[in-house]
């Protein structure tokens, strides 16, 4: 019965995602081929990556409130990206910026370090502070550079899927699927981590190296997502919650479904954000935060209720 439900939801999401590029004015083939379809593929790759990163980060930090955006990881990517373009550090493959990767990785390392000793509230506060660092650097950069660049800055702050190019998009999609495949293969280890760190250790799971692998993989995907589409919040919070609620926490199922649903939902959300106030386009990050922030508060309150009971 559960599988039927799963297939139905996925089919519905696929149908909506397929309709999404056709939303809006001017549906001739050239617009679709040149703008809408690459944009939808980018939205899928970004959505899937963000959702999967959220799932993995929640697991290694043992905290279901964690999410890349809340933890300030994209801020690290933004910081690195700006540093890279100012210093003209070349990327190795399309869409990949070494400095954005290192920025994300170092912010991630700070969070993991804090999480080892401190409580949820301190982890989240650290994330808030990292976000402050990121946004102040973007603002500084906006102030110092010429006005034509401020559009790009807004894009980082609020997320933007409109500047899609095939090369970087395919890179992200490919790496996203690679990360998915790897952690699907390691799903037994991830499952053991559901029992908490010390029990997982006693079952022989190499917790420390697993944590490093997650950190590395999420930094990779997040840095590319940020370079391509800016900061899109809360996808990594909402999708894993929803998927765990539907299919349970076991990773053989939750890893691929999180990526799939995350991708499809961002394609749909992008269609809606383009179409809702046409001809104006709502930045996708504004849209996801609009839904995601209340959702965060809901999860927070539910969690506290659960703890008290």
């Amino acid at each position: 019965m559960k599988s039927t439900k799963l297939i139905l939801i996925t089919a519905l999401l696929v149908a909506l995602a397929l309709v999404s590029p056709f939303l809006g004015w001017g549906n001739d083939w050239s617009i679709l081929a040149e703008f809408r379809i690459p944009r939808a593929v980018l939205a899928f790759a970004v959505g899937g990556s963000l959702a999967l990163c959220g799932l993995l980060l929640q697991l290694i930090l043992q905290n279901s409130l964690c999410e890349p955006y809340i933890l300030g990881l994209p801020a690290g990517g933004t910081l690195g990206y700006i540093a890279g373009s100012v210093l003209r550090i070349p990327g190795l493959i399309p869409g990949f910026s070494v400095s954005a990767f290192l920025g994300t990785l170092s912010f991630g390392a700070i969070i993991v370090r804090v999480a080892r000793r401190e409580s949820t509230s301190l982890i989240l506060l650290t994330g808030v502070m990292l976000n402050f660092v990121g946004s102040s650097v973007v603002t500084l950069w906006m102030t110092l550079s010429d006005p034509s660049q401020s559009q790009a800055a807004i894009r980082w702050l609020f997320g933007d899927l409109s500047r899609s190019e095939w090369g970087p998009t395919i890179t992200l999609l490919f790496l996203g699927l690679l990360v998915l495949g790897y952690f699907w293969w390691r799903s037994r280890d991830l499952d053991a981590l559901l029992l908490g760190e010390s029990t997982a250790r006693s079952l022989g799971v190499p917790v420390q190296s697993l944590r490093r692998e997650v950190l590395f993989a999420t930094a990779l995907l997040l840095s590319i997502s940020v370079s391509l589409a800016g900061t899109i919040g809360f996808v990594g919070l909402m999708i894993p919650h929803w998927v765990r609620g539907m299919v349970g926490s076991l990773h053989r199922r939750s890893v691929p479904i999180t990526f799939l649903w995350g991708g499809l939902l961002l394609v749909i959300a992008d269609g809606v954000s383009r179409h809702l106030f046409e001809p104006y386009e709502i930045p996708i990050g504004v849209m996801t935060s609009f839904i995601g922030a209340p959702f965060f508060i809901y999860v927070l309150m539910k969690r506290r209720g659960g703890r008290a009971a």
């Binding site: 697991l59 029992l195 609620g245 926490s249 076991l250």
Partner: peptide, 15 residues
């Protein structure tokens, strides 16, 4: 403490 939803029957064989 278990942070994520896990059914007892899955819990018994985790890892």
């Amino acid at each position: 403490s278990i942070e994520f939803p896990v059914r007892i029957q899955d819990f018994l064989k985790l890892g």
